[in-house]
Design a protein around this nucleic acid. Structure first.
Length: 324
DNA sequence: CGTCTTTGACCTGCGC
DNA sequence: GCGCAGGTCAAAGACG
């Protein structure tokens, strides 16, 4: 859910993820010195320029001041975001606690024996993609989980007769950001699925695909995948039931479909449902993936590189003795 | 040849 | 009872 994602996204920053610590407090000479290796790399070409071109030094100093101010502003923003995050998490926890208490109360008042007035509605509600999904928080890596415990109807067949069995199973909803150009409704989650139907529903022009877990014939888990009506870049996957076998992310799962643009990293933040339900929060692997992705994104950004070079140059300038 | 996807038809539940 | 909508089946075709 939102809080899980927020935690996954923020914790590395809050706890001072070392690999992403840029240490851009370039305007403060008291801060930690740079690693010697980097210092040497810049020094070799930089000091001749300092001597020959004082105007450029001034320009660099001005740039340094600007970057320092920006850094201070960003630090301030980060602190504000962290404070907001902590506050929101507290609110969410309160709401969840209140919600579960209310659920316990209502189910107790029903006596547990009163059948649901509309079983079908309960099932169809489990994939209401007409409602806007939670906003994507981190671009294409945004995935959101909503694990709901609802009474679900599991249908199976006997020769010539359909039997419906009422059971209580977990309904997990997962939002996956997908490439809009990718029309497939495939959500890679480590399990092997067999598509058994597709349907265009009333409130959503995008078709809904129905999948069954194909690893074990007896596995009751079903999956429904549909694009969100509000945001067609969002895939809404709803899992019903729990796997009665282990996860088998082998060659079959990987090869059952050609790789799609949305499949490569879409579980980077979220383990498969089974793992996720077992684990209290995002795994270390997920955090590492996030950190690596953010680092890669930053290093690919030319603007970020320019700012980094500028900051490093200014830092070295300050640390070095004046040679005039 | 086995497995998987596609897709039209059918089944079931619900509201009017 | 009828129509609608969601869910599922199963034949046909695609693919490796």
């Amino acid at each position: 859910m939102l809080t899980q994602f927020l935690r996954a996204a923020m914790d590395p920053w809050i706890s001072g993820q070392p690999s992403l610590s840029l240490d851009l407090n370039v305007g403060h000479p008291t801060s930690r010195p740079l690693a010697p290796a980097k210092k040497v790399l810049v020094e070799e070409n930089f000091f001749p320029v300092v001597k020959k071109d004082p105007e450029r030094v001034e320009a660099l100093e001005a740039e340094l001041r600007r970057v320092s101010e920006e850094n201070a502003r960003l630090n301030e923003m980060l602190r504000a975001v962290v404070a907001k995050y902590t506050e929101l998490q507290g609110h969410v926890n309160d709401m969840l606690a209140a919600g579960s208490a209310a659920n316990r109360q209502s189910s107790a008042s029903e006596g547990g024996s009163a059948a649901s007035p509309s079983r079908k509605r309960i099932r169809s509600d489990s994939l209401d993609t007409t409602k806007p999904p939670p906003p994507p928080l981190a671009g294409r890596f945004a995935t959101h989980d909503r694990i709901e415990c609802k009474p679900a109807t599991v249908a199976f067949h006997e020769p010539g007769r359909r039997i419906r069995e009422e059971c209580t199973s977990k309904v997990t909803r997962r939002y996956v950001h997908a490439d809009p150009s990718d029309l497939s409704l495939v959500v890679k989650d480590g399990y092997q699925w067999r598509k058994y139907g597709q349907k265009v529903t009333k409130d959503n022009p995008c078709p809904r695909a129905y999948f069954r877990c194909s690893f074990a014939p007896s596995c009751p888990v079903k999956k429904k995948v549909q694009r969100s009506a509000e945001d067609t870049t969002m895939l809404v996957a709803t899992y019903e039931g729990e796997h009665n076998h282990g996860q088998h992310e082998g060659k079959n799962a990987a090869a059952s479909k050609p790789p799609t643009s949305n499949s490569a990293g879409q579980w980077a933040l979220s383990p498969p449902p089974q793992q996720q339900e077992a684990a209290a929060g995002p795994s270390e692997v997920a955090r590492k993936n996030l950190a690596e992705h953010m680092a890669a994104t930053l290093t690919r950004d030319p603007g970020f590189k320019a700012a980094l070079v500028s900051a490093l140059s200014g830092r070295i300038l300050e640390m070095s003795p004046t040679r005039d």
